[in-house]
Amino acid sequence: MSALADLPPLRESLDAHGLLARKSLGQHFLLDLNITRKIARLAAVGEGDLVIEVGPGPGGLTRALLETGAEVVAIEKDERFLPLLQELAAAAPGRLRVEHADALAADEAALAGGRPAHVVSNLPYNVGTPLLVKWLTGDFRPAAMTLMFQKEVAQRIVAAPGASAYGRLAVIAQACADGQIVMDAPARAFTPPPKVDSAVVRLTPRADRPAPARLDALQAVTAAAFGQRRKMLRSSLKPLGGEALCAAAGVDPARRAETLSVAEFLALADQLGR
């Protein structure tokens, strides 16, 4: 801990390396250690835990995670930050491994080496949603996920049926995990400040997560239903069976996608898979 405590403030490190956020990579840095330490507490990680962090950038959240005693695998696409992250690794011997890779193509299960792994990240804005879907539906099963998104995306993840934010992302996320917004973060907390506020979502994978074939069917049903969300299901689901599919699932074909519960979408997916 003493070596971590001896590190210069993040702003000084960024200045020393001449580093700025790149808009093209959706980068917005969290440099306030009070905020990053709160995220680490919300993630409930500590000594002996393994954390996978995507897009650490200058390492603000990484420092807070290392302070808990956790081991961190940091996946960073932007090679400009590798020297800065290696300095951080030197201050926490044996507890930070830096992987220069694109997280969308990374094999998290291999990086975890068979150990349970938490995913804790201030996600780059332009890849947050596809990364979440990857972790929810792929072979890698995180122990838990504590993730910073644009607030609008966070609201879409936890939205209930009937809410304007309820859509495909809510159905997929809630079929696979239990989630809640645990922290709001105003734009001014970031460097540079984005044009929108952010929020942290805590997700715990469900033990009864749908099997891969069921998830594929669920994604097909939600894509059709929400692709024409203002139409009745008899119309929006017509390519998949329309009224017959709805009847088999016990769903009124005169309803619209945003009124269906996750369980009803799963019932439609089960019938589609038959």
Rank of each mutant, 00 (worst) to 15 (best):
M1A: 12
A16L: 10
S24K: 15
Q27V: 00
L30H: 13
D32F: 06
L33R: 14
E47R: 15
I52Y: 07
E53Y: 09
G57T: 01
T62G: 08
R63V: 00
A70S: 15
D78F: 11
F81V: 01
F81N: 05
L88C: 08
R97A: 14
V98C: 11
H100R: 15
A105Y: 01
A105K: 15
A110T: 07
G114D: 12
H118G: 00
V119A: 13
L132M: 09
V133L: 15
W135G: 04
L136S: 07
G138Y: 10
P142S: 03
F149K: 12
Q150L: 05
K151F: 06
E152G: 02
R156T: 00
A159Q: 12
A159M: 11
G167T: 05
L169A: 10
V171C: 05
D178A: 02
Q180R: 15
Q180E: 15
M183F: 10
A187W: 01
A189E: 08
A199P: 01
V200A: 10
V201S: 00
A211L: 12
P212K: 13
L215K: 10
V221S: 12
A223G: 01
A224Q: 13
R229M: 07
L240Y: 08
A244T: 12
A247Y: 06
A247K: 15
A247T: 09
P253T: 11
A263V: 05
A267K: 12
